[in-house]
């Protein structure tokens, strides 16, 4: 363990911890943009610059390991001005998109610009062409001109998903996020969920809503037994998007697969079965749950009486919870009285 002093607060952190982690331990916030806990720090945005006693130049807090006895200052007028300058440079070619951008209201860049009071563009340049996106999937739209090149998407694709289908192409002012030749995108949306600005947007549902309009309902993904946590964005009783904003939440820490992130349209589908159907006179008709369950129970009883319990078999689903699966096998064994029970995941 080593001792670090941050803005006059002494904290003890394990050896190898970065200055940013030490500051978090001390309860001091250092503004960041490219940093994300689950990704490797690269110190590219320079928002997290801090002054370290004995160092001639400010250092980036997210990728500089804290040293024993280090004395760090996280806020000074000079640092604020440096951060402002970083933001001014990021805004140089940023389009005037806030009113139409999906991310408006929950955009890290917006928050930082407002926080640091960057109002006038000090630098000017040629606008960036809003041309055809460099990489696309049916679910994700890229807006290259909104991109701040923080590299979160590139790292998330490579480090979290192990796919690595995108990279920063070209260099300097002309760099952009583009595809890696020969590596196919799996449309998992990991890049989308970590993008701090509106450079990657969800194109599944045509309706969009601001963060304060849509209700975000935390729920568990129903596709498999992992139990990924996600938020359904509900507007006027209709799901319009799936988001993951809590990167600390087990078991998925903000990651989802293509099904969890984009496969929710059935929820709003008009043909979706919402009530039990019972076949009467050769035709399926809507029934109450009491009626339907009563019928199933009666039929099972009849089969059991006529052919014995082993004439019934049960196949459970990975889309049910552990508790439901337990109850199902209990039901087969104790109520029906057979060991004919299996599960789709036991391949």
């Amino acid at each position: 363990m080593i001792n670090v002093t941050i803005d006059g607060v002494r904290v003890e952190v394990p050896k190898g911890a970065t200055i940013l982690e030490a500051a978090q331990e001390a309860g001091i916030r250092i503004p960041t943009l490219c940093y994300l806990k689950k990704l490797s720090p690269i110190g590219s945005c320079r928002m997290c610059v801090v002054e370290v006693e004995g160092c001639t130049k400010p250092v980036t807090a997210c990728d500089t390991p804290a040293g024993d006895g280090m004395v760090v200052t996280t806020d000074s007028e000079e640092l604020r001005e440096m951060r402002r300058d970083v933001l001014r440079l990021l805004l140089v070619r940023h389009p005037l998109d806030c009113p139409v951008c999906d991310k408006g209201g929950e955009c890290d860049l917006q928050d930082l610009v407002y926080e640091f009071g960057v109002t006038a563009e000090s630098y000017r340049t040629e606008p960036f062409e809003r041309d055809v996106p460099r990489y696309v999937s049916p679910f994700i739209r890229q807006w290259p001109d909104r991109c701040v090149l923080c590299g979160r998407c590139v790292r998330a694709c490579k480090e979290v998903k192990g796919v690595g289908c995108i990279q920063i192409v070209d260099n300097g002012f002309y760099s952009y996020i583009g595809p890696v030749p020969g590596v196919e995108c799996i449309s998992c949306g990991e890049c989308l969920s970590v993008c701090p600005v509106g450079a990657l947007t969800d194109s599944v549902h045509p309706t969009k809503a601001r963060i304060w309009q849509a209700e975000r309902v935390p729920t568990t993904c129903g596709y498999c037994g992992v139990g990924c946590q996600l938020e359904l964005n509900v507007l006027n009783g209709e799901v319009i998007r799936v988001t993951t904003t809590d990167f600390d939440r087990a078991p998925n820490f903000g990651s989802l697969c293509v099904k969890g992130r984009f496969g929710w349209e059935f929820v709003n589908h008009p043909d979706r079965l919402e009530k039990p159907l019972v076949r009467k006179d050769g035709e399926l008709k809507e029934a109450t749950w009491d009626e339907a369950l009563g019928l199933v129970a009666r039929k099972l009883q009849e089969i059991k009486d006529e052919h014995g319990a082993d004439a019934v078999g049960g196949l459970s689903s990975a889309r049910c919870t552990n508790e439901e699966n337990y109850l199902f096998q209990k039901f087969m064994r104790a109520v029906i009285g057979t060991n004919n029970v299996d599960h789709c995941a036991r391949l």
């Binding site: 806030c98 610009v113 407002y114």
Partner: peptide
């Protein structure tokens, strides 16, 4: 000015 737009938006 994008800076002013953001300030206005926020």
């Amino acid at each position: 000015d994008i800076g002013c737009l953001i300030r206005h938006f926020k």
